[in-house]
Amino acid sequence: MSNVTILKNKQNKPYVPSNLTIVLIFSLLMLGLCVIGSLALGSRVVTMDGLIDGLFHQQVQSYEADVVRKRISRTVFSLLCGAALGVAGALMQAVTRNPIADPSILGVNMGASLFVVCGMAFWHITTAGQYIWLALAGAAVTAVFVFGIGSMGRGGATPIKLVLAGAATSAALSSLVTAIMIPRSTVMDQFRFWQVGSVGSGTWSSISLFLPFLIIGILIAVLSAPALNALALGDEAANGLGVRTGTLRFAAAMAGVLLCGAATALAGPIGFVGLLSTHVIRLLLGPDVRYIIPLSAIAGAIILTVSDITGRLIGSPGELEVGVVTAFIGAPILIILAMKSKVRSL
């Protein structure tokens, strides 16, 4: 009797993580701070007046206001890229049922890079609209390849196997990238601009190019979240719950590839954002994929923007690639995860 009522209660009120509101408010607050920071900070620090002028008083023409206006597109772009990378990380972790999955660790970023470089060197492509398709193809091929190697043999895709497969593939691809690039000085310049430009290269046109991919990717992610929750119980249990695991895997993995491939095409390879954001959110909210996906998007946006600001500040008067900063703050997460994991699950 009492059992039934408890069940009913549960059905009426879906499970909500207890600290969801606090986390949500806090992360939105952080997001706001990031936006202000990203607009105001850099090799030239802007005053409050300049910031307000740049944002709201279109007619005011001052140097500071111009700087702020130039930073708007960059900020928007870094928020979107961060969101895409955060969701891509969450999706890949859910699909591989593996806490260490991330586009950079799985070598997917490098696959996208290689295809872009090939395009630059052999087909002389130059526009972001062309990069994006090549990057997507490269990301997809690499994802399949790495996952294929990582899941061979006993125990399926364990963290250690996936990470090693990803690291090996990354190493192979990056040496190919260098080999293709260095004899061709024009490609090298173009590639370095693409790679180093990172989120700084974000213009309104690249944002509009990026937006459809982001929307489609996030839509698929949100729609597949409940099924991904079931997948967390294992393939057989998920099947038993009526999930078509093959289709789900394919759709979710492709959404992940779409998101990180598009982000890589426009911003260059940026690592560890997905790993970091997903783990922070999982630590705060627990393992429910339905909450992890949207909040990882916010966390990813925050992490990438903060990294971008950091890169601008410590690299001043130039700037440090955002990928270097994220590797530096994200890699410790990998180390901590390795330290905490049980020997058997490696």
Binding site: I160, S341, V343
Partner: peptide, 18 residues
């Protein structure tokens, strides 16, 4: 565990390369 050692090494390497 050798697996743990290798994972940590890879993480450390990413940081050092940064």
């Amino acid at each position: 565990s050798i697996g743990r050692l290798i994972l940590i090494g890879i993480g450390l390497q990413a940081m050092l390369d940064a």
